[in-house]
Design a binder for these strands. Structure first.
Lengths: 341, 341
DNA sequence: CGACCGTCTGAGAGCGCTCCCAGCTCGGGC
DNA sequence: GCCCGAGCTGGGAGCGCTCTCAGACGGTCG
């Protein structure tokens, strides 16, 4: 009757006109319909249906100052790790939870320090309500950058101690998981339990080392070996360990990839697992854990759940704008017993 | 002088006031400064600088109807393939080119048919200017879905013939690359050239088969073997081939992963490469190609470039709203000669 | 039967920006 | 010296939506 507006998308105005109510009432209905009497609600809904009305996002954002979008910041070195199913799972969790919150995932890919300006501008530009980032390396300057933009942010993984900004994060209980793994080896009667550690610049590796030492307070430094989370480094470390301490009878490896390397070395040297050496990994990475011989005992972390939690934490941050930053979350780990220990 | 607006972000109004010009002029400067005299441009720029002004995206979108965002639609089965560096590279190319166009990448993760409604609503909701999608499987109903939303879209990979919607796409010259590979084997004097093909529901695999037949019109069907793009299937196919046709002296494999499997079989059987059997792969996938023994001759496609091209095509689509859909692009491939053929 | 109150509804004022158009300035041509 | 046009600039009207606030409506209570 009023406007025909062919081609262009219908506006709230049109819906209101068709339903015979005011724009305000139509708006109320579209946003849940609280405080509007049933007959009117129905009329408006019908109009929405008939017109195929979809709210204009920009207009809504303009007044509410909410975007319904969250940035996921991925730094170049991390993206490589997309091959790491770990990361993929976490992003999947994030994506799912974001969908549940009617929010979109805007991927911000940082190629290097040269990109920091662009990212800062974007983050500061109010395009997104909040950000999700991952802290992988101690030397990463991203956390500081993000801190400066003041945008609500949640980290995946505990940021290095150095960055003193109090950002909430979600992390697995690396230390507790490590403790459980080592205790399990102890309970198996193992006396000389070694640790093949991950890189020193990642808090997850550090925490797992701490967990190891929590249980084995006086562990012989000779039983400690440094790796870098790659399969190859695990194999090498195991060889080193075997040479140095032939009496090693248990080993807790900081991740499954290294553990699989260690297993390879063990096999090549004719060491029986778990009879001679019991081995526990970390991550419960499906692609590794299923294929090793013997099947690997490892510590599982709910990676997808961590991704979801990151989103929930962020949403809470956004809703309690005034309040304090919510506490970080440490998700529990579970020991998955298989054949290797 | 006028408004102090502490805390809140400065508006164009504030910039204009500080520069002593009108909002309109300030807007012109912010958007390039065409048609504004130099001294005013400087004044406005200075004001922008001092105030730390960042344009409000929502307000701009509201009037221009441009979002500066593009959806990248990733269907679940594909995401698994993130471990496939192929996909990662393509997304990297997309991300880079999008950045160059000042556009954002909104990741739309489709979990299954149940998600189609949500995706359609989002795409139809004017949140993004266009979409980028990948066509991997013939049976995928995503292309049809996207076609219905009317949103400008570019596909990565040629959609299956079945979907008759004329969407522009970017694809490598699979057929031409295959021809080149086979011709190379022919030029090496090989007489019995086999083909290990990829899955029938992917156009890339189909096109490579066609390329093989282009050169070897009367190829013995016994020299054809079906694989599914996995390493394992390549190994199996090669074994089959060797049993069936011991006189095979050349093989063109539809991707590097299968080729690496084939190479393994060849080695296990004591067949010398390239002396007894010359082998050519496809993709030039760094993680495979570098590690095989002998180093693999293969067909390279510029995957990152394809990602970038997808974005450029989309941008052209957006700018020539009225015009015809731009033609699809087939990017050239190059034969990379190494040791295996 | 009138005063009062709670519940709904609608008018209207923006949110911050772009862009059309009117108007002003200034230089050049006659 | 005057007129005209080119080149700039600013006023103002929205873009589509939310949200405040006041008014309308219909009961209820005294």
């Amino acid at each position: 009757m009023t406007e025909q507006t062919t081609g262009s998308r219908p506006t709230l105005e049109a819906v209101a006109a068709r339903a015979g109510v005011s724009r305000a009432t139509a708006s109320r209905v579209v946003n849940g319909g609280a405080g509007v009497r049933a007959p009117l609600v129905d009329k408006v809904r019908k109009a929405v249906e008939e017109l195929g009305y979809v709210p204009n996002h920009a207009a809504r954002t303009l007044v509410t100052r909410r975007n319904g979008a969250v940035a996921v910041i991925i730094a170049e070195p991390e993206f490589r790790i997309f091959s790491d199913p770990f990361f993929e799972q976490q992003v999947r969790g994030i994506s799912r939870e974001l969908t549940a919150h009617d929010s979109q995932l805007v991927l911000l890919w940082v190629e290097g320090p040269g990109d920091h300006d662009r990212i800062a501008r974007y983050l500061g530009g109010g395009h997104v309500d909040g950000a999700l980032a991952f802290s992988l390396h101690n030397d990463d300057r991203l956390p500081a950058l993000i801190g400066r933009t003041k945008i609500p942010t949640v980290f995946g993984g505990r940021p290095a101690a150095g960055s003193d900004l109090a950002v909430p994060y979600v992390d697995a209980d690396n230390r507790g998981g490590a403790r459980e793994a080592v205790r399990h080896l102890v309970s198996l009667g193992r006396r000389n339990i070694a640790h093949i550690a991950g890189p020193r610049d990642q808090t997850s590796a550090l925490d797992r080392i701490d967990g190891y030492h929590d249980v084995l307070v006086d562990a012989d430094p000779g039983l400690f070996c440094q790796g870098d989370f790659t399969e190859e480094s695990g194999a090498r470390a195991m060889a080193e360990l075997l040479d140095r301490r032939p009496d090693v009878d248990g080993v807790f490896v900081s991740n499954d990839l290294m553990a699989s390397g260690a297993l390879r070395t063990l096999r090549e040297r004719g060491v029986r697992v778990p009879e001679d050496v019991a081995l526990v990994g970390f991550d419960d990475m499906a692609s590794v854990v299923g294929t090793t011989e013997p099947a690997m005992t490892t510590v599982r972390q709910d990676v997808e759940g961590m991704g979801r939690l990151m989103v929930r934490l962020l949403m809470r941050l956004l809703n309690e704008a005034g309040g304090e930053a919510p506490a970080s979350v440490i998700t529990p780990t579970t020991l998955v017993r298989r054949a290797s220990a």
